[in-house]
Design a protein around this nucleic acid. Structure first.
Length: 579
DNA sequence: TTTAGGG
DNA sequence: CCCTAAA
């Protein structure tokens, strides 16, 4: 029942320090528990070197350079961008100063939300996704086994959601079509393996990034599951403490929860670009004294995670796999991490020095800039964010607690025939064609014109400094967090069903509409349907050229307008009667 | 919980 | 899609 085949994934990611242990509860659930004495974080290093303007001048050398790294454990690809100060898209150093590490973990591109005090950091999961997807076929191939081990590079266990494990179906027979919904995916992650066991199979990250196997190999796969969420992002959304204990979305119960700090933080992202920006109070202070016209932009393009073992049912979707991995990565990064700076092998402690003063910003390939992830000294005063971007830290203001997610996989044969009636969806196997289209717009912030890249070379495998032993999470308590649901564009058949239902029931009875046409579609809530109708009406009113996504047949849009007009009128009549 | 709307 | 005030 449990795996035998191990799939190797090259996660571009951090070497994740903390290693919780997994255990099984009586109910067979896998839970994550911190090992008593491994409740610590191993510091690890990311070695980087300034490599000049390669993005522009010699990108291939960068790739080669990085690719030649022998130690797969941790290398990080950084961009340093010199950018003329311009109000529009200037880099905000805030992130580095305040440093949500999660933002680093997920290559981030964020647009500053003008006028918002809150930060919205969109992290990118595609980085993981591409790799996973690239080998996702392997997963799909394993149909004879219930569980598949996914071996990545990650020093950490992932924990499934305890809440829904119980719902893991034992049997797929006799089930009717089910949605392949993340929320129904069950993922079990149990053990981890030595970090050294990379099997040499850890794909070169950079190459993967270039090749993006998923897009090339999976694109034509018949199994839409391969497509599923290929380009999706999994933003984390922070919740306000003490508010909203439940969500209206019915299918969110199994989402992992956690807590972010009180600022509104989002993680989201774009493909492989790793520009990191942040809108924050710090944004206004980004000008370095003495170098006010030249910012150094650092962006972590990629990173590798040592090893990760996941037990995952073969019936799990690629999407759930991705999510699991992402979950693990983000969870592992958690809080309590900070980044130390090593310059030429020595820890650089003077945070007041500027990049220029330290030479980091210079076009110098010999600086050997390193970053070191390390536990945060709890007894240490919070880093001074305002001073120097050299220290990335999760910072006290940016606590991000995460809990492993639970993905329950509704086992069941995924029926390709996609039987659906116009009025009732019992199976929704969309292939999300249009999800792809929205992704071209990444790396927006990569103004490569003045971009330098720090090529990370593999870190010397050590990093067990004195800081290595620190409780991973000594602060327990509120960990509630939920993530934004994945985007699931409505397919045409769904739209048709919706239209038909609304034609029949009207626009004010979304619960009935849901029940009528989407009763078995768990990921479509009545709110979703209502929202979709709203957008449909809007879509129908705008010119076809302005429409995006999978085109909805004009005929349907016409019906939308008609139905909308009709029911609006009915509503008016009712209101008049009531008066 | 649903509805209705703004974000 | 999310968040929420209202119903």
């Amino acid at each position: 029942m449990v795996l035998q085949k191990k799939l190797n994934y090259g996660f571009n990611g951090y070497q994740v320090p903390s290693i919780p242990t997994a255990s099984r509860s009586a109910r067979g659930r896998t839970t994550i528990r911190k090992k008593h004495d491994s409740n610590q974080i191993q510091a690890f290093e990311i070695l980087a070197s300034v490599a000049g303007n390669f993005l522009q001048e010699n990108e291939s050398s960068v790739l080669d350079n990085a690719a030649s790294a022998k130690d797969p454990h941790a290398f990080i690809d950084l961009n340093i961008k010199h950018k003329q100060e311009d109000e529009g898209g200037s880099f905000k150093r805030g992130l580095f100063e305040q440093g949500t590490f999660s933002g680093v973990a997920s290559p981030c591109v964020t647009g500053s939300q003008g006028g918002h005090n809150s930060q919205r950091i969109m992290g990118d999961s595609s980085l993981f996704g591409n790799h996973l997807e690239g080998q996702g076929q392997n997963v799909l191939e394993r149909e004879d086994e219930r569980i598949i081990h996914v071996k990545g590079s990650f020093d950490r266990l992932i924990e499934p959601d305890r809440r829904n494990l119980g719902s893991l179906p034992n049997d797929s027979t006799g089930r009717k079509l089910v949605h392949r919904d993340y929320d129904e995916n069950f993922v079990r992650c149990t053990q981890l393996i030595s970090r050294n066991n990379i099997s040499g199979s850890t794909p070169d990250m950079l190459k993967l990034m270039e090749a993006s196997p998923f897009t090339s190999d999976m694109k034509n796969s018949r199994d839409s599951s391969v497509h599923e969420d290929s380009q999706r992002m999994y933003p984390f959304k922070k919740r306000k403490f003490f508010t909203q204990t439940s969500s209206s979305a019915s299918d969110r119960g199994s989402h992992c929860q956690g807590i972010f700090d009180s600022s509104d933080t989002r993680i989201n992202g774009a493909n492989h670009s790793a520009a990191i920006e942040e809108s924050s109070p710090m944004a206004g202070k980004r000008v370095h004294p003495g170098s006010r016209d030249c910012n150094v932009k650092l962006s972590i393009k990629s990173f590798k995670v040592p090893e990760l073992f996941i037990d995952i049912p073969e019936t799990a979707t690629i999407g759930s796999l991705k999510r699991t991995v992402l979950e693990a990565v983000t969870a592992a990064l958690g809080d309590e991490l900070q980044v130390g700076i090593l310059l030429q092998g020595k820890k650089f402690r003077d945070e007041s020095k500027t990049l220029i003063q330290t030479g980091i910003s210079q076009d110098d390939k010999h600086h050997r800039l390193r970053f070191m992830l390390e536990p945060r000294y709890t007894q240490i005063a919070p880093p001074t964010y305002n001073k120097d971007p050299c220290l990335l830290t999760t910072g006290s203001r940016q606590k991000i607690f995460r809990q492993p997610t639970s993905l329950t996989l509704q086992q069941g044969t995924y029926n390709v025939s996609q039987e659906h009636s116009l009025t009732k969806f019992e199976s929704c196997v969309e292939s999300d064609h249009n999800a792809v289209s929205s992704l071209t717009d990444n790396s927006v912030n990569n103004n490569s014109s003045k971009c330098r890249t720090l090529v990370a070379v593999p870190a010397v495998n050590m990093g067990m400094g004195p800081l290595a032993m620190v409780p991973f999470r000594h602060k327990s308590g509120n960990r509630d967090f939920s993530r934004r649901r994945i985007r699931r564009p409505f397919s045409v058949p769904e739209v048709e069903a919706l239209v038909q239902a609304v034609e029949k029931l009207g626009t004010g009875r979304w619960r009935d509409v849901k029940q009528s046409a989407f009763d078995n579609v768990k990921h479509r809530t009545y709110v979703d349907l209502k929202d979709k109708w709203k957008t449909l009406v809007h879509t129908a009113r705008i010119s076809p050229q302005q429409r995006r996504g999978e085109p909805v047949p004009q005929e349907l849009l016409d019906r939308v307008l008609i139905a909308h007009a009709y029911w609006s009128q009915q509503q008016c009549k009712h209101q008049l009667k009531a008066m």
